[in-house]
Design a protein around this nucleic acid. Structure first.
Lengths: 209, 209
DNA sequence: TCAGCAAGTGACTGAGCACTCACTAACTGA
DNA sequence: TCAGTTAGTGAGTGCTCAGTCACTTGCTGA
């Protein structure tokens, strides 16, 4: 007997399956046929819920965006120092990537880079949001004397984003062969140590010693 | 009149066109038809020189690899300090990426991530090579007292690779809207400053002051 | 100068895939 | 209970592409 569900429910199922499969097969290998199969529908049923495949990608981007925002907000809760909050936000992001490998897969996909402008804008916006959050925390860290004076908060954030993205690339291309959050936490420690406040005179002292 | 060239010459032309077009259209949008058009041949002629499209990708990877190795070697020439050589190698890499946008395009492509295992191995190998070079320079920097003692050369190299890759992502996704080598040079400066040697006691002095 | 080789072509094939459409049947509310 | 709504289907279309194949034609060396 044919099982019918509400459109809302099906949409969510389809987005879920797309997210999962995009991580497994990669966004360009992902066909509506495969998605339908995973959900237990025939292929044309997908188009009952999303008029174009692009609309499905938009829904996926929206889902990813809201999950990310939620995690970032949670990472900033608590009474940690600004640097501690940066750590929390970055680790939250890495854990999310580990749980949703579709995120780097889509970020590195041509689906995003050439085919689907809306998707590109959505992801670029997320990158900017992430950068903004880290940069704001860095600014507070600098004000609290936890950050070198010669390091602009924006630049500190770029370096931290680079850490996350470089790690994600290495993780993806190596076949996800290590624990992302763990390795990221370790490297972030080293990175933040290099960000710590150190007046110029200290360098002179070192040079003289 | 039909123009005939030697197979060797044509192969080089086809690889050149593929590299150029992969940067413009993206690796998955790139059809044999488009390549043939750029070279001035019909589509089946491509298969006269490369039995499968994958063979063409392999030739492209080989070309990229040899160009990279040459640049890295050149960057290490001269009598700069180890840190200076790291800077030279990184800037050389960024300039190459700027000249050959196909490199990040392929690095981020599904062509590499799921479709074409040989290509993935070739690029992963290049990443490892780059990491090795930077890590070796970092080890020499540490021996020369230019690098913090708590920072393993391998980890320093990971952070620097992250900088390069994060920058490449931002550059790609932003529509190549800034000067890669310039921005990279600036960030690398900030990064290397954080790598500079600083004994633990200095931090304690700071904390006490 | 001409035989043989190999670069190149025109016309196909077949697979993959997004998307369509007429139709069916499960649910819902009056 | 039954009419209207809408999730879902089966069969198909058209397009894009990698790859094939029989054939042609420019080039080279004996």
């Amino acid at each position: 007997m044919r099982i019918r569900k509400t459109a809302e429910h099906r949409k969510a199922e389809i987005v879920d399956a797309t997210l999962r499969l995009a991580g497994e097969l990669g966004p360009e290998r992902l066909t509506t046929e495969a998605i339908a199969g995973a959900v237990g529908l025939t292929q044309p049923a997908i188009f009952r819920h999303f008029p174009k495949k692009q609309a499905l990608w938009s829904a996926v981007a929206e889902r990813i965006g809201s999950v990310m925002e939620a995690r970032w907000a949670k990472g900033q809760q608590g009474d940690a120092t600004p640097l501690g909050q940066i750590r929390a936000v970055v680790v939250a992001q890495l854990q999310l990537i580990q749980k949703m490998p579709a995120i780097p897969a889509i970020l590195f996909s041509r689906e995003l880079h050439t085919r689907n402008q809306g998707l590109r804008e959505a992801f670029f916006g997320l990158l900017i949001r992430f950068h903004r959050i880290v940069a704001d925390l860095a600014a507070r860290a600098r004000a609290a004397g936890e950050l070198r004076g010669d390091l602009e908060p924006d630049d500190a954030a770029f370096l931290i984003l680079g850490l996350v993205q470089g790690l994600a690339i290495r993780w993806s291309i190596s076949g996800r062969s290590f624990d992302l959050a763990e390795e990221g936490s370790r490297l972030l420690d080293l990175q933040l140590r290099g960000f710590a406040d150190r007046p110029v005179r200290v360098r002179r002292e070192e040079a003289m010693s």
